[in-house]
C-alpha cells in the first residue's frame, strides 16, 4: 500500500499560517451563489463551499484577489486589511 509521510508528514505546511502576508482582505457578500469558481482558482487552497456559499480561511489567504477578480457575480470585495 502507499504510505504518505515517509520522510515528512503530508500537509504539514499547515503549520505555516500565511494569512499574515495579506494586505487586502476578500469579503464574501450575499451575492455569492456558491458556483465554486473562486474555489477552483484559489492558489492557496483556502476557499471551501459551505451551504452553497464560499467561505474563506483567513489563516492562509494571502489576499491575492484572484477570487474577487474571477467571481462572475462580483460577490467578493477586497478591503484593506486592518487586523
Amino acid at each position: 500500500m502507499l504510505r504518505v509521510g515517509s520522510v515528512c508528514e503530508a500537509g504539514k505546511s499547515r503549520l505555516n499560517k500565511t494569512g499574515d502576508w495579506r494586505t487586502l482582505r476578500p469579503q464574501v457578500t450575499d451575492k455569492c451563489n456558491g458556483c465554486g469558481i473562486c474555489e477552483l482558482f484559489c492558489p492557496d487552497s483556502c476557499i471551501v463551499l459551505e451551504n452553497k456559499k464560499a467561505v474563506i480561511d483567513y489563516d492562509y489567504c494571502k489576499g491575492c484577489g484572484i477570487c474577487a477578480n474571477e467571481c462572475p457575480k462580483q460577490a467578493i470585495e477586497m478591503e484593506e486589511e486592518r487586523n
Binding site: K12, K17, D44
Partner: peptide
C-alpha cells in the same frame, strides 16, 4: 461543476507568491 468532488491535495500554508499560477 458542482457535482465534481472537490478534493484538495495541496495543503494551504505553502510559500508560493500571492496569485501564483503554478499553485493553481
Amino acid at each position: 461543476m458542482a457535482s465534481q468532488e472537490r478534493i484538495n491535495l495541496l495543503a494551504p500554508g505553502h510559500r508560493a507568491c500571492p496569485g501564483c499560477g503554478a499553485a493553481v
